[in-house]
Nucleic acid binder design. Structure first.
Lengths: 225, 225
DNA sequence: ACTTTGAATATTGGATACAATATGCGATAC
DNA sequence: GTATCGCATATTGTATCCAATATTCAAAGT
């Protein structure tokens, strides 16, 4: 029998859908730091009971994206400047390792896709997109790596600071600089020079950290949910 | 008014208690890999409904300790040899950084406590304790560090491999070697030599990785839940 | 006015009830 | 005997309901 079957058992449950949507909203900064997440309100939005909402919130808490207090509910977790700095330090440690591992495994297609994303990022003048384009570029580079666990941790780290990165790209001259650095990293990858790509990436992340810390007060005062 | 008040709002909820107990049972290897976690069974054990059990399982999944399939339930997640190796590589990257950060911040008390744990580990001839004593020694060293996020990630990494580390300590000569290496690391800390402690720790972890990989087939065939 | 108290409301945590799906087993057809 | 089907049971996912706690606000006392 020839059918294009999909594995229905891996279909998303209500709670995982809600988790994904809330996660996205939080990391993109659509819900302001310290905003409460009301179970009832969310349940109504998704036309479900509060049960799957609660499970989604439990997972978000485990990811460090919200903080909950018994009988008081969950609020979006924010970071202090030193905490954000620490997350960047972790990224600066992990992501270069991932990239070094990925470079020798990159296919022609993968490199082409990365270049496309890199160009799109550089060309875009729509601030709303920058965050996505930035992340998708990094993600594409790492996708060739087989360090699943490293990637998982790096993803979580990025989740925690993406909000600030987005705001920083808009406020500062971060966009131009990031574009240039991305091309340099990409070129090292294309040359097959993992060590160089790795070093450039490290500098890229630490540069972003510095820039972020410089603008941190301005970033956290912006409420936008 | 002077009372030794405790913050009751931070009292543990049923779901967090269940989470803690399940987590402990899983990382200590009391529940075998791939064993199913039956919601009803667990709920009965704790005299609760399945609701808090489900929240606990959601969190465990987010931590990578169990895998779930829709309508089929959760099973304890196991690691392949390369996956375990990757987790050790992550530890070898993170924990030395944590220790380097911690060393200059260690109080006399902290060092004394670490030495006590180190001695206890070295002296113990009760295999059941080894895993705990090992972890508590490492934890004490890191406790002086202010890298909360690094520690969080390192903890999760250790959670995922602790089962194997425990088994390996029992099967191989890992115990003796670990004891010696612990003392060397501790001495470097006592001398205030963070770089040296950091290097020794890295070697310690990579040595454990090597030893673990050598024994991996034997470790994973042992079922004990 | 300021503080305190207590009741009304809002919100969360958990239990029970029901729906959807998986699993095991016997019956039937071949 | 083997394969397939269909029902009974087991298990999970979600909705509804109740209990516990937080929050708000008006009333009363000072």
């Amino acid at each position: 029998m020839k059918l294009k079957a999909i594995d229905i058992s891996r279909t998303a449950s209500a709670s995982s859908i809600i988790f994904d949507v809330l996660r996205k909203a939080i990391i993109e900064g659509e819900i302001a730091e310290n905003s409460p997440l009301r179970q009832d309100e969310i349940a109504t939005l998704f036309n479900t009971s509060r049960i799957p909402v609660r499970e989604a919130i439990s997972r978000l808490e485990e990811q460090g994206l919200v903080k909950t207090q018994r009988y008081k509910g969950a609020i979006v977790a924010g970071l202090s400047a030193p905490e954000a700095a620490e997350v960047f330090d972790l990224r600066a440690l992990l992501e270069p390792e991932i990239l070094r591992n990925a470079v020798p495994r990159m296919s022609r297609d993968c490199l082409a896709e990365a270049r496309a994303h890199c160009q799109a990022f550089s060309d875009s003048d729509s601030p709303m997109e920058w965050g996505d384009l930035n992340r998708v570029f990094h993600k594409t580079l790492y996708s060739a790596s087989d360090l699943k666990f490293f990637i998982e941790v790096a993803d979580n780290a990025m989740d925690r600071v993406e909000r600030y990165v987005r705001a920083q790209l808009v406020i500062s001259d971060g966009m131009e600089r990031a574009g240039i650095e991305h091309f340099a990293i990409l070129e090292a990858c294309e040359m097959g020079d993992g060590d160089r790509a790795s070093l450039l990436l490290r500098d890229h992340i630490l540069g972003a950290k510095r820039s972020l810390l410089d603008h941190f007060p301005a970033l956290t005062s912006r409420q936008d949910g």
